[in-house]
Write a protein that binds this DNA or RNA. Structure first.
Length: 260
DNA sequence: ATGCCCACGACACGTGGA
C-alpha cells in the first residue's frame, strides 16, 4: 500500500499536475493540503476517473484538505478534535482495509504560525497539542495508523539549507520542534527519516529568489507512523523532480510504502 | 538590508503563504 502526502497550493491550478503525478506514482492513498476551495468546487470527477474515492474537507480561499483512496473508504472523520470553535479546514481522516487489519490515514495541514511570537503562533502550538492528544488516543487501539501532511515543522538542522536564517521562524523555533519531538516520542516514526540518513533532503522550495535552482529548501512534509504501521514500512521517498514540472506547487509529494 | 514569487478575491492591491 503506497500512501502519500502533497500540499498542492490550490487544486484548481494544480488539477492537471496532480493527475499527471497520480498516473506516474500510482499511490493508493493520497492526502492533499491547501486545496483552497469549497467542497463543491473540488474536481472530484477528475480523480474518480483515475479510480480514486474522494473525501473533501474544503474551505473558501484558504486551507482545505482532501483524501484520495483507491481502497473503499470504510470510515472517515472531518476536522481535528479538541476545539469546536476552530473553523479552519485542516484535518481529515479515513480508514481503509489492509490485508490483516484496518489502516487509518489522517491528513493534516498544520498551521504555519508566523509571525512568532503572536496569536498565529499560539494557534499553531495549540493545534499541535490537539494533534498530540489525537495521536495518543489512536495509539491505544494498537493498530496501524499514519498522520501525514504539511506539518510546517523543520525537525532538525539537517532539514534546512540555512539553519541560522530560520532560527526564529515558526517552522523551526525551539518550541515548535519540541512539540513535534513530543509526538515522535509517543512512539511515532518519521517514515522518510527512518529509511534515509542523508541530510538536506527537502520537500518545499520557495517560489522566490530561485530557491529550487539553488536547492534552498526545507523538509516540512512528513509521514508519522504508529508502531504497528512502522512494522510494515518497506519504503519511502520524496518526489522532488515534480518541483521542476510546469506550474508546480512549492511543495512536492512525499510517500511511503507499507506491506499492508 | 530588502524583496524577490504565487494564489485568492474581484479589480486594486491586501492577505496569506513559509
Amino acid at each position: 500500500m503506497k500512501i502519500a502526502t502533497w500540499n498542492v497550493n490550490s487544486i484548481k491550478v494544480r488539477k492537471e499536475i496532480v493527475s499527471d503525478w497520480l498516473r506516474e506514482a500510482e499511490p493508493d492513498v493520497v492526502c492533499l493540503q491547501e486545496i483552497k476551495c469549497v467542497d463543491d468546487a473540488f474536481p472530484k470527477k477528475a480523480f474518480e476517473d483515475l479510480n480514486y474515492n474522494v473525501l473533501v474537507h474544503g474551505q473558501k480561499t484558504y486551507n482545505g484538505v482532501a483524501i484520495l483512496s483507491k481502497y473503499p473508504i470504510e470510515d472517515h472523520m472531518i476536522g481535528l478534535p479538541g476545539d469546536k470553535s476552530d473553523d479552519q479546514a485542516r484535518y481529515a481522516e479515513i480508514v481503509v482495509s489492509g490485508e490483516s487489519s484496518p489502516v487509518r490515514v489522517g491528513g493534516l495541514y498544520l498551521p504555519n504560525g508566523n509571525p512568532a511570537p503572536g496569536p498565529k503562533y499560539d494557534y499553531k502550538l495549540a493545534w499541535m497539542d490537539r494533534l498530540y492528544d489525537h495521536a495518543a488516543g489512536l495509539l491505544a487501539n494498537e493498530e496501524p495508523f499514519l498522520l501525514i501532511g504539511d506539518y510546517n515543522i523543520i525537525p532538525h538542522e539537517d532539514d534546512v539549507h540555512d539553519a541560522e536564517a530560520w532560527r526564529e521562524d515558526a517552522l523551526f523555533r525551539r518550541e515548535s520542534r519540541t512539540k513535534f519531538n513530543r509526538m515522535v516520542h509517543l512512539g511515532l516514526t518519521d517514515a522518510y527519516r527512518a529509511l534515509h540518513e542523508d541530510a538536506h533532503q527537502y520537500t518545499f522550495w520557495d517560489y522566490q529568489a530561485g530557491a529550487w535552482q539553488k536547492n534552498n529548501g526545507i523538509r516540512i512534509d512528513h509521514l508519522l507512523l504508529s508502531p504497528q504501521a512502522a512494522d510494515l514500512l518497506t519504503g519511502s521517498g520524496i518526489d522532488a523532480h515534480v518541483r521542476g514540472w510546469e506550474k508546480p506547487s512549492d511543495h512536492v509529494p512525499v510517500w511511503c510504502e507499507l506491506n499492508a
